[in-house]
């Protein structure tokens, strides 16, 4: 299915986009991460949380939304 990925903070910078559409064939968040890692190797070394339906997910959660947000922690103050 087509999924829109929204990148926050530093992740938008390293992937070069704040949002993009991808074709996703897997089932879980873990599968989705793998797909994204293949597309953007640089994500592999970044810490972030994955959210859909405005809720944080674990790797095992099933992907049910067509919009997924990748949220990194922010250091600045």
């Amino acid at each position: 299915m087509m999924i829109t990925i929204k990148y926050f903070g530093l992740l938008a910078e390293v992937t070069g986009c704040s949002s993009e559409k991808i074709n996703f064939y897997g089932t879980t968040i873990s599968d989705l991460k793998e797909t994204l890692f293949q597309k953007h190797k640089v994500l592999k070394n970044k810490k972030f949380k994955v959210a859909q339906h405005n809720e944080l997910n674990t790797d095992k959660t099933k992907v049910t939304s067509t919009e997924i947000a990748l949220l990194p922690p922010f250091a600045g103050g």
Binding site: F8, G9, P73
Partner: peptide, 26 residues
Amino acid sequence: YAGIYKFEGQVSVFNYNNGPSYRCLF
């Protein structure tokens, strides 16, 4: 809590009435 990155920010209240902590998020 709050953290910022360039033009973005994140805010939350942790450890409030048995709510989550920063470590529950990250």
